[in-house]
Design a protein around this nucleic acid. Structure first.
Length: 713
DNA sequence: ATGTAGGACCTTTTT
DNA sequence: GGTCCTACAT
C-alpha cells in the first residue's frame, strides 16, 4: 500500500526541483546555528526542545523541505502530525507557497492525529477486523449525544446525571466515579455496551475510536513511513504516543518538536514528563532551540521564573518597558480602564489587532465584551463556533451524512424530525417510516421522499460521476425541504448553495467522483467542526482579541493584558501539586505571548466564586526590578514559602470555625477524616504532601497546607 | 406525581 | 454563591 514512488522526473519537474533547492538553501542561510543543526541532523530519533518563540514552525518546515528537496524523499513517505487543524493547514499552505508543484495528494498523511487516523482507517487499515466496514463516517460529540439519547430511550435504561453524561462516561472509562452521592448504581456499564454495538451498526466512529482502532490495527499492517514529524509533541497523550510507536518500524525516523514548559493540557490525558519518557524509550537525541526573538528581555526574565529548572531560554531584544501590575476594584472597572488604554495604543499608531486580553475562564470575557461594545471598540472573543450554530448548514451536512452512510440511522432521524427543515415529523413517525422503507425499499408519503433520496444518492451520484451544486440541490428537492415559506428561506438557500459549492470544489480536488469526495468532506466537517464555516467569514478584522490563557498558546501580540491574576483564579483553587504546576505553565504561556508590553491585573473585589481579593502569589514571584506596581507584599522565594502564604491568605479570608484542625503527624498509618472522602489511612508523607488511602476512592495526595484533613486521635 | 432537603460541583477544550 | 440532581417523603 505504501511504497516509495519511483523517482522519474520530467525535465520541467527537474527544473522546478532545482529552483526549490536554491530557494531552500537561500532560506536555510537565514536560520540561526541551532535551527540549522536541527534541520540537518541525521539521527534516527530526534527531539527538538524548542523554547517559546524560538522558531519551531520554521524549523519544522525547513526539515520537511530539506528531506524532500535535498534528501529527495517523496512527501508521501512522510507522516506529519499536529494537534489542531489550524497547524496542519498552515504547514500544508506554507509548503505549497514555497513550491507551487507540491500537490495536496502528496501530503496525504499530513494532518491532525485524528485526521491521519481517519485516512489510515479509510484507505490502509482493515477496519473489518474491528467490526466496521469501509464506508464508515465520523460522529462528532453532538451526534454522539443523539446516539446516547436514542439508546437510553430504546432500551429504557436508567442513567443518572444525564446532562453530564459525556463527563460521566469519561470518568467511568478511567474507573473513577463522578458523583459520590449515587447510592444506587444505574445502567451505565450496560449502556456503554449498547453504545459499542450501536456505533458498529451505524458504521459510525467517534473521535476516540479513530485513535483506538488505528492503534489496534497498525501493528499488523505494513504501513511504513520513512519519516514521522510531530509538532507540539509535548501535548501527546498516551494513545497518541502509541500511535506513533506503532507507525515506527525499524527504518522509520522520527523528528519531534515541542516545549516541555508549555504543557497545559495534561487534564486531557497528556503527561508532563513526556520528553523524558520518550527520550528513554527510544534513546532519542535531543537538541535545543534556545533563542527567543519575540519578547523584550524584561518579559523573558519574568517568564523564566515559571520555567522548569535547567531550561535554556535566551533573548535577543533589549530590556523594554517594565511589566505593569495593576490593581482594580473589579473586572468592570478594569474594562473601563482598558478602553482608555486601548485608545491610547491606537493614538500611538498601533492597531487593534496588536492588542490581546487573556483570562482564565471564558466567563470573564462577558464584561469586556459588553463594555467595549458600549465604547464602540472593535473586539473579538475567541469562542468555539460549530456547524450547529448555523442550523441550515448543519441540517444539510446531516442529510449528506445519511446519504453517504446508509447505516447512519441517527442522521436520518435528525433530518426527518428537525423542527425547522425537512419533514418536521415526530420521532415515532420517523421510526415507522424508516421501518416501512426497510421492509419494502420505498417510502410513500411526501415525508418519505427524503428517505428515498438519501437511499438513492449513491447510485445517482455514481451514474453522474461529477455533480454540480445546483444538481445536488435539485436532487434533494431542497426548495421544498428548506421551508420556502419561512422568512429565512433565501438566506438558507444561499447558505446551502455556498456549502454545496465548497463541497463540490473539495470533491473535485481530491477525487474523480463526487460521491467519494462528499464522503470525505462530511468526515472532514466532523473533524474540523467550525473551520469549514469560518473560512470566508471575517478572517483578519482589525479588532482587540479576547481569549483564555489556553487559547493564547501559539499566538503572539505586541501588547498583552492578563486579567484577573487573583488568588483562586490564577492559580485556580483546589489544585493538586501537579495541577498547581500546570497553572504556572499556563501563566508562563500567557506571559510569553507578549512582544513589547505586558500588563497584569488583579481585582480587590472579585465577583467570582472561589476567587479571593488578593493578588496571585505568582505576581510576587516576578523579580521586583522588572515591575512597576503598587505594593504586592513580601517576595516569596520558594514554592513552599509560597504555599504557606497562600494558606495564610485563605485563613485570613475565611472564618476560623470552618477550618479543619491540622495536627502535625509524626508517624504514618494514622487515620484521617476527610469531608468528602471519609475515613482514610495515611500511607506516606513528606514536608508538604500527604498520601492517603481511602477505602472507596483509592489513594489521594493532599498538600498539607491546603488539605481539609482531620487527624484522628 | 410533586415537594424539599441535602450533596456535589463549579475551569481549561481539541478532535 | 448558584445550579443541577438525587433521594426520600408525602
Amino acid at each position: 500500500m505504501f511504497r516509495q514512488n519511483e523517482i522519474n522526473l520530467t525535465s520541467s519537474e527537474l527544473l522546478s526541483s532545482t529552483v526549490s533547492m536554491e530557494a531552500f538553501h537561500k532560506s536555510f542561510e537565514s536560520l540561526n546555528e541551532y535551527q540549522k543543526a536541527a534541520v540537518i541532523d541525521h539521527r534516527r530519533v530526534l527531539l527538538v526542545n524548542s523554547q517559546v518563540g524560538s522558531g519551531k514552525t520554521t524549523v519544522l518546515l525547513h526539515k520537511l523541505l530539506y528531506l524532500h528537496f535535498i534528501k529527495k524523499l517523496p512527501l508521501q513517505s512522510m507522516v506529519v502530525l499536529t494537534f489542531t487543524n489550524k497547524a496542519a493547514q498552515e504547514i500544508k499552505d506554507r509548503l505549497k507557497q514555497l513550491n507551487a508543484d507540491i500537490k495536496d495528494e502528496e501530503m496525504k498523511f499530513f494532518g491532525t492525529f485524528h485526521g491521519v487516523a481517519r485516512t489510515l482507517l479509510a484507505d490502509v487499515l482493515p477496519v473489518e477486523d474491528v467490526g466496521y466496514s469501509r464506508g464508515f463516517t465520523i460522529a462528532d460529540s453532538n451526534e454522539m449525544v443523539e446516539i446516547y439519547e436514542r439508546i437510553i430511550n430504546e432500551n429504557k435504561l436508567s442513567i443518572k446525571y444525564k446532562s453530564k453524561l459525556q463527563k460521566r462516561i469519561d470518568k467511568f472509562k478511567q474507573g473513577q466515579p463522578l458523583y459520590a452521592n449515587m447510592k444506587q448504581d444505574d445502567d451505565i456499564s450496560e449502556f456503554l455496551e449498547h453504545v459499542k454495538i450501536e456505533k458498529r451498526k451505524s458504521n459510525v466512529m467517534d473521535f476516540d475510536d479513530l485513535i483506538d482502532f488505528t492503534v489496534k490495527l497498525l501493528p499488523e499492517s505494513d504501513f511504513r513511513p520513512e519519516w514521522i514529524v510531530i509538532d507540539e509533541f509535548q501535548d501527546c497523550d498516551k494513545k497518541q504516543l502509541q500511535m506513533i510507536e506503532h507507525m515506527t518500524k525499524a527504518k522509520t525516523s522520527v523528528f519531534a518538536v515541542g516545549d516541555p514548559n508549555q504543557v497545559i493540557y495534561t487534564w486531557r490525558g497528556g503527561s508532563k514528563d513526556i520528553f523524558r519518557e520518550f527520550k528513554l524509550k527510544y534513546d532519542a537525541a535531543e537538541l535545543t532551540l534556545p533563542i527567543n526573538y519575540r519578547s523584550t528581555s524584561n518579559i523573558l526574565k519574568a517568564a523564566r521564573v515559571f520555567m522548569e529548572p535547567g531550561g535554556a531560554l535566551e533573548g535577543v531584544r533589549d530590556k523594554g518597558k517594565p511589566i505593569i501590575i495593576k490593581k482594580h476594584h473589579n473586572s468592570f472597572n478594569e474594562a473601563v480602564y482598558l478602553c482608555d488604554k486601548i485608545k491610547q495604543h491606537i493614538a500611538e499608531g498601533d492597531s487593534y489587532s496588536d492588542i490581546a486580553i487573556f483570562y482564565r475562564k471564558q466567563k470573564q470575557a462577558e464584561v469586556f465584551r459588553d463594555v467595549f461594545a458600549k465604547h464602540e471598540l472593535p473586539c473579538e472573543v475567541a469562542v468555539k463556533k460549530t456547524l450547529r450554530d448555523i442550523p441550515v448548514m448543519y441540517w444539510m451536512i446531516r442529510l449528506l451524512k445519511a446519504s453517504v452512510n446508509r447505516s447512519d440511522k441517527d442522521s436520518l432521524i435528525y433530518i426527518l424530525c428537525n423542527n425547522r427543515y425537512g419533514a418536521g415529523i415526530t420521532l415515532k413517525k420517523a421510526k415507522e417510516l424508516i421501518k416501512s422503507y426497510d421492509s419494502c425499499h420505498a417510502a410513500e408519503a411526501i415525508e418519505g421522499e427524503i428517505i428515498n433520496c438519501t437511499r438513492g444518492f449513491e447510485a445517482w451520484c455514481r451514474e453522474l460521476g461529477k455533480a454540480s451544486p445546483k444538481e445536488i440541490y435539485d436532487y434533494f428537492d431542497l426548495s421544498m425541504f428548506l421551508m420556502p415559506t419561512s422568512i429565512s428561506f433565501e438566506e438558507d438557500k444561499s447558505n446551502v448553495l455556498r456549502l454545496l459549492e465548497d463541497i463540490c470544489s473539495y470533491a473535485g480536488l481530491i477525487s474523480f467522483n463526487t460521491f467519494e469526495g462528499i464522503k470525505e468532506y462530511v468526515d472532514k466537517s466532523a473533524l474540523y467542526g467550525n473551520q469549514v464555516i469560518n473560512e470566508g467569514i471575517s478572517k483578519s478584522v482589525d479588532s482587540v482579541k479576547l481569549m483564555t490563557l489556553h487559547a493564547s498558546k501559539g499566538l503572539e501580540f505586541k501588547h498583552v493584558y492578563i486579567s484577573g491574576a487573583n488568588l483562586g483564579n490564577i492559580p485556580m483553587a483546589n489544585k493538586s501539586p501537579e495541577g498547581e504546576q500546570e497553572e504556572q505553565r499556563l501563566f508562563f504561556v500567557g506571559i510569553t505571548r507578549a512582544k513589547d508590553s505586558l500588563e497584569i491585573s488583579y481585582h480587590s473585589n472579585p465577583d467570582d466564586y472561589g476567587v479571593y481579593g488578593v493578588p496571585s502569589p505568582y505576581l510576587r514571584m516576578i523579580p521586583e526590578e522588572l515591575i512597576e506596581s503598587e505594593d504586592l507584599g513580601s517576595r516569596a522565594s520558594s514554592l513552599n514559602q509560597l504555599r504557606r502564604e497562600i494558606k495564610n491568605n485563605i485563613d485570613n479570608k475565611s472564618d476560623a470555625e470552618e477550618q479543619a484542625v491540622i495536627v502535625p503527624v509524626e508517624k504514618a498509618y494514622r487515620l484521617v477524616l476527610h469531608d468528602k472522602y471519609g475515613e482514610g489511612r495515611v500511607i506516606s508523607e513528606d514536608e508538604s504532601n500527604v498520601l492517603v488511602d481511602f477505602p472507596i476512592y483509592g489513594e489521594k495526595t493532599f498538600i498539607k497546607l491546603f488539605s481539609q484533613l482531620k487527624y484522628k486521635e
